[in-house]
Design a protein around this nucleic acid. Structure first.
Length: 306
DNA sequence: AATTAAAGCAACCGCGTCGAA
DNA sequence: CTTCGACGCGGTTGCTTTAAT
């Protein structure tokens, strides 16, 4: 016997989220905060399992999420952190507050790994591969066994530290890790504003983007009008907006008066992660008195980690 | 213009961890 | 101390979009 599924298989909707569902979720989280996911489906009427709701929120609707367009600096940071930490995507994401672990993971799998493979191949003359990460492990150069990069890490600790420090010093980077997550990271202590109306506005913007996209796509689909009616009903919009556009707008209006939501930690791929060693290592050694020419040292060659 | 292959990304699945009972 | 439920994480899948032929 195994663990029962987190949700009943029957009656649970799967697949892409619709704008209506997004609105429901956002409006619920606005009111109750991003916690007690178990209660979300029943309280919102969403036919989704709690897990799915949480995922949707953290990866897509959460305020302050930046999507796509990874800068070179972000790339560098990901590469260095991945080399240091391995596939600890949530931990890596905690160093990049506006990115989600899923986004970083996807970006790594689809872009960076190949990029590195190419670089390494051109440097070492090895053969490169290109394939998506599915099944056939032929994709990127098989990552070195964990023990290997750990050993590499030990032998090349100094270089790695310098590299990470440089990566973390980029202007767009969040404050040093210690500032970001002092243990279980109470959101309120983040240098960035805790969840505020403005932050929720961000998530509304996310939803609005989805809606706009959806509108464009379904401009020819009349059926949309009907579903939008339900949105406005849910959001207290009142008289069941007839047109999809107006209905949406009305639904969104409901969010403009957003207020609170205690810092419940909503933001954030809750960095429950513990990297005390790394952090204290950076703090004690690197960040504190780091200037002594450290930045003149070139980045560690990421290829060495593979 | 049509077809096929490859890439990108959102979402799902299963397992591990943690806290409450 | 044990059990159970909820949450979080990493790996994987599969649908959609884009590029190549």
């Amino acid at each position: 016997m195994g663990r029962p599924p987190c949700c009943e298989k029957s009656g649970v909707k799967k697949g892409p989220w619709s704008p209506e569902e997004d609105l429901l979720l956002v409006s619920y989280v606005q009111e109750h905060g991003p916690e007690n996911w178990r209660a979300v489906p029943s309280n919102t009427g969403l036919m989704r399992c709690s897990k799915s709701c949480r995922l949707r929120w953290t990866n897509y609707l959460r305020p302050g999420i930046k999507r796509g367009n990874f800068s070179d600096q972000e790339e560098k940071l990901i590469i260095e952190l991945q080399a240091l930490l391995g596939n600890k995507w949530s931990t890596i994401a905690s160093y990049m507050r506006d990115r989600t672990d899923n986004d970083i993971k996807n970006y790594w799998n689809t872009h960076l790994r190949k990029k590195l493979a190419k670089t390494c191949a051109s440097e070492s003359g090895a053969s490169g591969g290109s394939a998506k990460t599915k099944g056939d492990g032929a994709a990127a150069p098989a990552p070195a066994p964990k023990g290997q990069w750990e050993r590499q890490l030990q032998t090349d600790m100094h270089t790695a530290r310098q590299a990470l420090q440089e990566a973390l010093s980029i202007d767009t980077a969040p404050p040093p890790p210690a500032a970001i997550k002092p243990e279980p990271l109470p959101l309120a202590q983040l240098p960035a504003p805790a969840l505020s109306p403005a932050m929720y506005a961000c998530s509304i913007e996310n939803v609005v983007r989805v809606l706009e996209l959806w509108m464009q796509r379904s401009a020819s689909e009349k059926a949309s009008a009907q579903s939008m009616t339900s949105i406005s009903a849910v959001s207290g919009g009142g008289e069941g907006g007839s047109g999809s556009q107006s209905g949406t707008a009305r639904a969104l209006e409901g969010f403009t008066g957003m207020t609170k939501v205690d810092g419940a930690g909503g933001a954030g791929p809750g960095p429950s992660s513990s990297l005390p060693m790394l952090e204290s290592w950076l703090l004690d050694d690197g960040m504190g008195h780091g200037d002594e020419g450290l930045f003149c040292v070139p980045l560690a060659d990421p290829c060495e980690f593979f």
